[in-house]
Design a binder for these strands. Structure first.
Length: 220
DNA sequence: CTCCCGATAT
DNA sequence: ATATCAGGAG
């Protein structure tokens, strides 16, 4: 596992590669962010944004979702995968926000997790992006990058990855580091065809060195 | 662990 | 053709 110092160096280097790493899910308020992140499970941000562009015109408040039939909402988000679960979750979550939170999205992570379709990762995104609460949401990119670089162990659960990152990164850097890891994973250290050949972190990357020995790294 | 699931990259 | 995508629930 990389030391605190080495992780700090990695995050700074990644920050130079992606100086504008921030949330790419389009939204204009916390409620829209909750809906967008709930839709984003196992689906690209680009596709979510394509769908929410029309969705947020049609549905502006939790009441709008609560007053729609599940079938109609399913059709409105059909092009996103897992649409039946997501439609049901968004309708229920809207009802809960109306009935239990006075129509206002809670900022507390434990309250957010009570909402259907909102797990720890989604709650961390909402708390962090919408309310400025320090958090590290461990999604597929953060998990993969952390394991490849050696920020944590390969066998670690997503919760263990999150705990390790919180321990090794200063609180004031949690949110920005989280977004840097997302961008690095999404555009550079991709699941398929990672760009190890043009990676400034290759020399200290455990997975990169392994790929180098296997002859999988194309020089740039 | 399995299921949910369409769009896109490889 | 197959893998992957800002996962969560049962």
């Amino acid at each position: 596992m990389l030391s605190k110092k080495e992780i700090e160096f990695c995050l700074q280097t990644i920050g130079e590669m992606f100086p504008h790493a921030e949330c790419e899910l389009k939204h204009t308020n916390p409620f829209e962010l909750v809906v967008a992140v709930a839709l984003s499970a196992q689906c690209t941000d680009a596709l979510v944004n394509r769908v929410t562009e029309g969705l947020f015109q049609k549905y502006r408040t939790p009441e709008d979702y609560a007053n729609t039939s599940t079938e109609e909402l399913e059709q409105d988000i059909r092009s996103i995968g897992l649409y039946r679960n997501k439609a049901k979750n968004i309708k229920k979550l809207s009802e809960m926000i109306i009935n239990e939170y006075g129509g206002v999205v809670p900022s507390d992570r434990d309250e957010l997790v009570r909402l259907p379709g909102v797990g720890r990762k989604t709650a961390n995104v909402v708390a962090s992006v919408a309310f400025g609460v320090p958090a590290i949401a461990v999604d597929t990119h953060v998990e993969r990058v952390s394991k490849r670089l050696g920020f944590c162990r390969w066998k670690d659960s997503v919760l263990e990855v999150e705990k390790t990152l919180m321990k090794k990164i200063p609180v004031e850097d949690w949110s920005v580091s989280h977004h840097r890891l997302i961008f690095f994973g999404r555009y550079h250290c991709k699941a398929q065809a990672p760009k190890c050949g043009e990676c400034p972190l290759l020399s200290l990357c455990r997975e990169g060195q392994k790929r180098l020995k296997k002859g999988l790294v194309k020089a740039i």
